[in-house]
Amino acid sequence: MNFMQMQDAPQRAFGFLIQQATRIEAEVYRTVYQEIQYQDIVPVDTTGPEWVDAITYFSSDAVGQAQWFNGHAQDVPNVELLRDKFSTTVSMAAIGYRYSVEELGKAALYGINLTNDKGVAARRVAEEKIDSVAFVGDTTKGYTGIVNNPAVAATTAPADGTGSATTFASKSPDQILRDINAVLTGQFTGTFGNYVADTLLLPYDVLLTLSSRRIDSVNQTTIIDWIKRNNIYTLTTGRELTIRGLFGYLDTSGSGGTKRMVAYKKDPSVLKLNMPMPFRFWNPWQMGPMLFEVPGTFRLGGVDVKLAKAIRYLDGI
């Protein structure tokens, strides 16, 4: 190989990478990650401008009550909205993948398509980061997540289990249902009947126990099935309560490092994850004489809790 051929090798490799990048990107975006849960748990808002520096939102609470009224009177009762203004910064994160001239050259020589393994791995890392921010936030950015927002009311489960314990494992099915309904009822009264929690998040091992433990030694019904039929949300609305198990995020989020349950209304008016720029790959670029990179970025503003009273925490479960 002469000098000119050696000089041309990186250009040929780069051209091959450009040709392959679009196909790889399409394959990566078709990949589904079953363990990534934020999209099923938190409403995601991608409508903001991609390069916005901050997102402003208002947390509101209605004050007022309808009264009996005489048609000739002039003092009509009015509702007032108490609004608090909040602003959250939007931050960018990046993850990409690389190829060497040797990798690209061999693939081009033998007519082999580049695999999407590196692209899939990069996107998975990005999704894991978004998942973590959605649930627990990021202290370096001042973000809190759905399981640790300080504005949300947190109570500890009654200590009337075996040995005065608070945990669900120490309690009877009736006590567990009582504790869950107390959280759902507290949310309903806390919002003057405007919001009822439709989603429960439980530590994974707690959900596993409830889904395998029967309500008694004779009945085949598990505690979780019994709760699904007899919780106050289902009895009030006729709709099924969504119950999800989370691995890791709720194990020590409660007071004193205890397990926590989260009950909330899954609605953008209550909470949402601001993601003005979902994860994307940018054009490949040559970062050195023999190395090429495909950068990927996304921009997040964290989870905005717009109505804290429509979310409740129960600790010590």
Rank of each mutant, 00 (worst) to 15 (best):
His72Trp: 09
Leu207Gln: 14
Arg12Ser: 13
Leu273Cys: 11
Phe69Thr: 09
Gln5Lys: 12
Thr242Cys: 01
Met6Glu: 15
Thr297Asp: 13
Phe292Thr: 04
Arg214His: 09
Gly48Ile: 00
Gly186His: 08
Ala122Val: 03
Ala126Trp: 01
Ala308Asn: 05
Pro203Trp: 06
Leu202Tyr: 09
Gln5Ala: 14
Ala151Ile: 00
Gly254Phe: 03
Ser59Ile: 01
Ser59Thr: 10
Gly142Cys: 06
Ala308Glu: 05
Thr189Ser: 04
Val90Gln: 07
Ser212His: 08
Ser170Asp: 13
Trp68Arg: 09
Pro43Val: 03
Asn113Ile: 04
Thr166Asn: 05
Ala151Asp: 07
Tyr97Gln: 08
Val147Thr: 13
Lys171Ser: 02
Tyr29Val: 05
Thr242Ile: 13
Met4Tyr: 05
Asn149Phe: 04
Asn148Cys: 09
Thr56Ala: 15
Arg30Cys: 13
Phe58Asp: 08
Ile232Ala: 08
Asn148Leu: 03
Gly254Tyr: 10
Asn148Asp: 04
Gln37Val: 14
Thr31Met: 12
Arg124Asp: 03
Val32Asn: 09
Pro284Thr: 04
Val136Trp: 02
Asn194His: 10
Pro284Ser: 04
Met261Ser: 01
Gly186Asn: 14
Gln7Asp: 12
Ser217Gln: 11
Val270Gly: 03
Thr237Phe: 07
Ala9Asp: 11
Arg280Trp: 09
Ala21Ser: 14
Met275Pro: 01
Ser269Thr: 09
Thr115His: 05
Tyr33Met: 08
Ser132Met: 02
Gly48Lys: 12
Gly145Thr: 05
Ala122Gly: 13
Leu307Phe: 00
Phe168Asp: 01
Asn230Thr: 05
Thr191Asp: 01
Pro268Phe: 04
Ile223Trp: 12
Gly302Thr: 02
Met92Glu: 15
Leu177Asn: 05
Lys106Trp: 04
Val152Asp: 04
Ala154Phe: 02
Leu17Arg: 03
Ile112Thr: 13
Glu35Phe: 10
Ile146Thr: 07
Arg312Ala: 06
Gln7Val: 12
Arg239Pro: 02
Ala157Val: 00
Gln220Ala: 15
Ile146His: 01
Glu80Phe: 08
Phe3Val: 10
Gln37Thr: 14
